[in-house]
Amino acid sequence: MRPGFLLLAAALLAAAFPFGPARAAGDAARGRALAEEHSCGGCHGPQGVSGQPNIPSLAGQPADFITLQMILFREVLRDAPPMPDLAQGLSDQQIEDLAAHYAALPSGPAEDRGPRDAGRFHDGALLAERLRCGICHLPDYRGRMQIPRLAGQREEYLAGAMAQYRDGRRHGSDTNMNAVMYGVTDAEIAALAHYMAQQ
């Protein structure tokens, strides 16, 4: 490999991938009103930080990620009750507005987050390094574009999502996550989820 590759790669990373076309973003204020109207906060938390098991936090997720998942729900291509039902009838613009709203909220861990387990955290860190999670999700796991934030997400939700990818029950717009999770054991998933949730 050319020696310049790593340097340039780092520069690209810092620029947070300006590859995609510029586009009119959703309107966060309209999104907030919509979220209230649809009671999204009843499940995902009033500020987008979820206090309920198996319901993910949305605060600070990249807008592209939320938009794509909402489209997959609406088109009934991601089977994850109750979301497909809840997404029916939302227009593309409304989805982009909702995404802008949640992307703008400050991310943070759930209030009911448990204490850090040094052993599992350490295992998770080593696995994340070996499986290169940070390459796509960024080194601080805040996500970018269609790639979600993992840092501070609910632990049991992360573990469930990873098992779904591994077992072929969830697919994104590409098969990267399915391939990443290939052969990862339940114990390894638990360590990864703990590590990410404790960021």
């Binding site: 790669a9 990373l13 390459i135 574009m145 790639i147």
Partner: peptide, 9 residues
């Protein structure tokens, strides 16, 4: 360490 990944659709 290359951060290249498929672009967002």
């Amino acid at each position: 360490a290359s951060p290249l990944a498929p672009h967002a659709p």
